[in-house]
Nucleic acid binder design. Sequence first.
RNA 1: GGCCCCGUAGCUCAGUCGGAUAGAGCGACAGAUUCCUAAUCUGUAGGUCGCAGGUUCGAAUCCUGCCGGGGUCACCA
Length: 584
Amino acid sequence: MNTFEYFKEQIVDILNGLAAAGVLGEIADTARISVEPPRDAKHGDISTNAAMVLAKPAGLKPRDLAIKISAALSALEEVSAVDVAGPGFINATLAPSFWHARLGEILEAGLAYGDSQMGGGRKVNIEYVSANPTGPMHVGHGRGAVVGDALASILAKAGFDVTREYYVNDAGAQVDVLARSLHLRYREAFGETIGDIPDGLYPGDYLIGAAENLKARDGDQWLGADEEAWLEPLRRFAVAEMMDLIRSDLASLGVEHGFFQSERELVERGGVDEVVQVLKDAGLVYTGTLEPPKGKLPDDWEPRPQMLFKATQFGDDVDRPLAKSDGTWTYFATDMAYHLDKHRRGFADLIDIWGADHGGYVKRMNAAVMALTGEKDSLDVMLCQMVNLLDQGEPVKMSKRSGTFVTLAEVIDQVGKDVVRFIMLTRKNDAGLDFDLAKVVEQSRDNPVFYVQYSHARCCSVLRHAADMFEAAELAADSLQKADFSVLSDPAELNLIKSMAAWPRMVEGAAEAHEPHRIAYFLADLSAAFHALWTKGARQDESLRFLNESDKELTRARLALVKALAMVIASGLTVMGVTPAEEM
RNA sequence: GGCCCCGUAGCUCAGUCGGAUAGAGCGACAGAUUCCUAAUCUGUAGGUCGCAGGUUCGAAUCCUGCCGGGGUCACCA
């Protein structure tokens, strides 16, 4: 249950009651009424602005209306205290029994706690990673992979029908370069000395293995052949090899896409011709010459008539070229075709996760989707800022040129999948992220990965010790659910339940805002509430220990609390794609 | 020069579609351990929310202009 949604309904009922009694006019719009946790817990459990929002149409002073609403609110059995504060906020404290019921709900739901129907089964398409098939993934790709994957999981949990896609950029000049680079390594595989890799070709040694594989499959048939003969087969071979590499990187990160769309396949199938025709029919294509960019001029710039899309009609700064001077399509044209294809497959909501270096393409892609679908805001492009890879505060040198850049696989090898995934979600996607190889594995308070994992492991530890007092079956969630929760009355215990009960609202909020990083912060807060209770019992007040040999019923209730917490943390970590640790 | 993102405590960052006295961790200072994992916890100090206007009952949040940092800028993907 989303506590705040529930009480919003209660308050709307109260308002309708007041309207019926003639105190208020008709309640036209309840959308502006918010029911939220107060910023300061001292103000109670829930807070609403209803009186301030409705005072003007009601012709009452906010505080006077607040008093009328609060009278009705305090009559609810779930509410133990109501208070009017400030300009007209209504704050309510909820009865312990309400929170105890939430505990039972969590134990009932288990990992499914927080599942929501908010999405109503609406189809969402989320495209992420889409790293070029020219080499292994690096750490920056990893961020997009994790952000996209976690967001997809949140949306699924919030009731959307989610499809996870990867766009394979296997067309265009860069794949020719890849094929030529492979051919060089192929010659090397036959013992030829190739010397330095020429400028403009990919120097990475990951092509050595691919060349060996090519040699094993095709023998020496491409050795003396003209480029014309081998370019096409090597292109296909190289892309397949690189995608194997990338798929393996994704697998080691626990990321799995449901669908890979090949750019090349899309072009060959006539997708671009089709999208261009659609735009032409709408009168959105013309041939024109663009102004040179202001500021520094590219060396080889020359005025040239081009086939242009009228992006400016949809909010972009200039019209955008669809075809290159050699007659092939621009990347933008093929990507438009891809987005039209997604739309036609029935996705009303599109999400793209890109690196920040593609920020300049956001406007035109939004313009394109608007032009093609007639809808506004159906595409959300989320940009992931740079990841700064550090080791004990010192930048790790990353040079693609020398081929010595650190790959995602190496980082996962060093610190583990769970650490990489968690850390990638500790910042908003549009803020830069420092990833310190030494710090992320530190076992300390300021490492959120450890802190959250440790709280889960502590729960498991308590439950293991509880096996001395109870049969295994008694420690199962459905058995603990029957415990008498009314003995849980300490503020620290109730606070912990309140923190857990915030999870459903958190899921909906993160899904709606497309902000997976909120989960990481939520789990850190939740863990803090638990560590506080733990230490209170261990150091200050022995009566708060979870295990109490002399009071089995109390212990059962506390174990229910611990079990529920482990479940909520596991629920959150699962959304992040992180495995909950049972022991550390 | 245009566009996009960022600017919150000494440092690293949260801040819920505009809400109350702006929060957390680190660092600093003062404390807590016979005990379920001290790998933790409790408390204190620390702020013109980059600057200046505007919108309104109310702005870190929305709008405009400026300052500072980063990214990007036909024919790459």
